[in-house]
Design a binder for these strands. Structure first.
Length: 374
RNA sequence: GGAGGGGUUCCCGAGUGGCCAAAGGGGGCAGACUGUAAAUCUGUUGUCGACGACUUCGGUGGUUCGAAUCCACCUCCCUCCA
């Protein structure tokens, strides 16, 4: 039911072109996955996401468990049916909330005691519960429960944390046995330490997961550290399994991630920044609220084929944001997700044509916001 | 005609002798956002030759070491009475 096919390797870099078979269809990789934490990609409805070109979306164990509750979603026929999305879904385990809700939780060997950010109630998240929740949700790809350690953290702490994450991964695997329809990914941790990244990767590969996530990155560390960590991690992962870099989605990092052998990415960046008026383009970011666009009747991006750029001007979009109209957030989200899917499509094409590095060079030459990391 | 209330920096609105270039909000300008506690948050918003100086609180004049704040007159606005 779940299978990764490596279709082509870039001869000059670690970039790979592949596909991923899931119970809800095939995914072409490298792929960008929009985030729909609360069973919705904020402001977009599923048929719009399909039109934009989303192959798979993310959702979240912690949030859906707290509200509306995984039992209800199970009763509704699973997350796909509940939210009316029939393509693949990947759910995060709540490991990121261990990081983002640091002030509301306590970590023990058993698991993480969360105090709900909604009503203050306490909930013990164990690897077993996290598997049970994701099983109830019925997502196609599920994540092992991990700790996304903050940046910066002491070597000693990161080591203890990653070793615990490995033990949790083992428990997840045990608990997951009866639900083979879902692909369980282990998550490599290790902070910004090369030796710990190697250790984590090695331990998880021994557990033999159908796919591997790389976590604990893009949590505030310098980009060169993230890239260094990727370079030493991906070669340690099995070639015939997908690699997923969690939480990464700026255009430059997508290009650099692919170059270092990553197949899957997710990020809230395109959707979140969209809601605050930032449009992502191949040439650089545009903050549509800037005064310079007040009377600019041209589209956000002349080259872009998305619905927003085909039909609306910068002046109109700016007006929507100034007036705080919801349509502004929707049209910007539409554009940004489209922009990242479009970028990934170009990346896939360039790998197929053996010119990924040329594409990369063009990208950095033309994007005023980013420069290549070498 | 009579009685009362009021005119504050782009707007609304605090302030009633020094700690006031003047609270707070709005608006404006700009920045941030990376497995979503985010349709959010932050900075800035009189001028300049700018760690200091200058011009501002309806207008004019006055009191005072010192006035957005006190006094006089003028002017405009609002409410009530006739």
């Amino acid at each position: 039911m779940f299978e990764y096919t490596l279709k082509k390797k870039d001869p000059k870099s670690m970039a790979r072109r592949g596909s991923l078979q899931t119970p809800h269809g095939e995914i072409q990789t490298p792929v960008f996955m929009p985030v729909g934490t609360q069973a919705t990609v904020k402001s977009m409805d599923p048929h719009e996401l399909k039109e934009i070109g989303s192959q798979i979306i993310l959702s979240n164990t912690y949030h859906l468990y707290l509200r509306p509750g995984h039992e209800l979603i199970k009763k509704a026929g699973g997350l796909h049916k509940f939210m009316n999305w029939d393509r693949p879904i990947l759910t995060d385990s709540g490991g990121f909330q261990v990081f983002s809700l640091q002030d509301n939780r306590k970590i023990t060997e058993e698991g993480v005691m969360f105090q709900s950010h909604i009503d203050g109630s306490k909930h013990m998240f164990t690897p077993e519960l996290v598997m049970e929740i994701q099983n109830a949700l019925g997502s196609d790809i599920i994540m092992a429960f991990d700790e996304c350690a903050p940046w910066p953290s002491e070597h000693d702490y990161v080591k203890k944390s990653l070793e615990r994450t490995t033990r949790w991964a083992k428990r997840c695997k045990e608990a997951h046995k009866k639900t083979e329809k879902q692909a369980l990914f282990g998550i490599v941790q290790g902070g910004g330490y090369e030796d710990l990244r190697r250790q984590s990767a090695k331990e998880l590969v021994e557990l033999d997961f159908p796919g591997y996530s790389i976590g604990g990155l893009s949590v505030g560390e310098p980009k060169n550290i993230m890239y260094d960590m990727l370079e030493i991690t991906t070669p340690l992962l099995p070639e015939n399994k997908p690699r997923y870099l969690m939480g990464v989605g700026s255009m430059d990092a997508l290009v650099e991630g692919v170059m270092r052998g990553v197949d899957m990415f997710d990020c809230v960046l395109p959707t979140r920044t969209a809601r605050t008026g930032t449009f992502l383009t191949m040439k650089g970011k545009i903050n549509i609220m800037n005064a310079q666009y007040a009377e600019d009747l041209s589209p956000v991006d002349e080259q872009c084929t998305c619905y927003t750029c085909q039909n609306y001007s910068r002046a109109y979009l700016r007006h929507l944001f100034k007036a705080k109209e919801i349509l502004g957030a929707r049209l910007a989200t539409w554009h940004n997700i489209h922009a990242l899917h479009d970028l990934m499509g170009k990346i896939r094409e360039s790998i197929e044509q053996d010119r990924f590095l040329e594409f990369r060079k063009e990208f950095f030459d033309n994007n005023r916001d980013y420069s290549a990391y070498n």
